[in-house]
Structures are given as C-alpha cells and as structure tokens.
C-alpha cells in the first residue's frame, strides 16, 4: 500500500517541483537598452543576470581609466550585472564563485573572476584607481549574506563568445547545507 502511494505521489511531487522551478525563472527586456534580465527565486534567495552590452562595458571602464586593449577583451567576454540576495534563507548564505558553473555547448566552466582578469591585465599597466574600480565592480569571489536582505550587485564575466547560450548554476550553502539556483537558456549579448 505504501509503495503504491509513493508510486503515485512521486510523479506529482516531481511535477510540482518542476513546475515551480520553471515558473520561478522570469525573463524581461529593458525597453531603453534592449538588455535582457533573467531572474529566479529559490530557497529564499534571489538570483538575477542582466546583460551588459559590450559598448556599456567599454564605456564604464574607459571612463575609469582602463586601457582600451584591456577593456576590449573584457567587454567581449559575455558580462552580466549579477545580483544575489538573501531574502528569507533561514541562516547565512555563503558562496564561492569558483563553485558556480557556466554550462554551454563548449562544456562547463566557472565564471572568470576578478583575480584572473587582473592577472591578464598585468601587461596593460592599469593605474591604481582603474585596478580598484575594476576589482570592486566585479561580483565578489566569495561572500556571506546575513538573513534579512544582505545582497550584492556586481559584474560577472562568463568568458563565452557573444551570442552564446548557457545555463548558470549558482551554488551556495546555508549552515553547511548545499543549495543551488539555476538560470536556464541565458543568452550573451551580440
């Protein structure tokens, strides 16, 4: 009898879970810039990616004193304005960017963190102010969000070519228990 009930319940539970995760992801377009935002809420955490168009990334960093060559390689690396927020998780949300995955046809890789980019920029001799602006405008490589609204917003480079499509798997832990949020079919700006 128990086996029979569980056999009937499991597909219902799975369909509910699937339905919830499918409904949880939204997609919106900024009418002024054309930038697309993908957002999901799961396990008390909000995760969103907003396309930063290559021209926007170029303008942002050139105006902060970055050399053109450095700006160009970064601007073409499929960059997103990324938000992660602890809305209602029961405890501290902790993540390391190195644990996140960008899954595309090319395979799975972690987003390219600020330290990697700054190493690539070594030959470009960035000024101190440009280096600081670049480092702190990036999404943090590791962070903890206390319950009740801690959050960050920062730029995230996936390293993919323009117009690529990918899934982002963001991973975090709450009191040692692992969780993940997935944004599916995200597209890089052209």
């Amino acid at each position: 009898m128990l086996r029979d009930i569980s056999r009937r319940l499991i597909p219902v539970i799975l369909s509910l879970l699937w339905g919830e995760s499918a409904l949880a992801q939204t997609r919106s377009v900024d009418p002024e810039t054309g930038s697309v935002t993908w957002e999901t809420q799961t396990h008390g955490v909000t995760l969103s990616l907003t396309q930063i168009l290559p021209d926007q990334a170029r303008a942002f960093y050139v105006n902060r004193g970055m050399p053109t060559a450095a700006t160009e390689s970064y601007a073409k690396s499929c960059v997103y304005m990324t938000v992660l927020r602890n809305d209602s998780a029961p405890d501290v949300v902790h993540f390391r960017l190195a644990d996140w995955s960008v899954v595309s046809e090319a395979g799975s890789q972690s987003p390219i963190g600020a330290a990697t980019w700054l190493k690539r920029f070594e030959a470009d001799a960035l000024s101190q102010s440009a280096r600081i602006a670049f480092r702190w405008a990036q999404f943090p490589p590791e962070q903890e969000y206390q319950p009740g609204g801690d959050w960050n917003q920062g730029m995230l480079s996936t390293g993919l070519p323009p117009n690529s499509e990918f899934d982002l798997v963001a991973r975090w832990d709450v009191a040692g228990e692992p969780f993940e949020g997935v944004l599916k079919n995200v597209r890089c700006a052209k």
Partner: peptide, 24 residues
C-alpha cells in the same frame, strides 16, 4: 560616444531590488 554610452550603463544597473532596512 563613450561618455554618452556611459550614461546608458546606469539605467541598466539602476534596475535594482527594493532597499531593505535590516542590520545584522
């Protein structure tokens, strides 16, 4: 052109969630 485009960055980045008032 770059300066003008710079202004475009902020509307995108300004599309933010509401501010909360909790201190941990």
């Amino acid at each position: 052109a770059l300066l003008l485009t710079a202004w475009l960055v902020f509307p995108v980045l300004a599309d933010l969630p509401p501010l909360t008032h909790g201190l941990a």
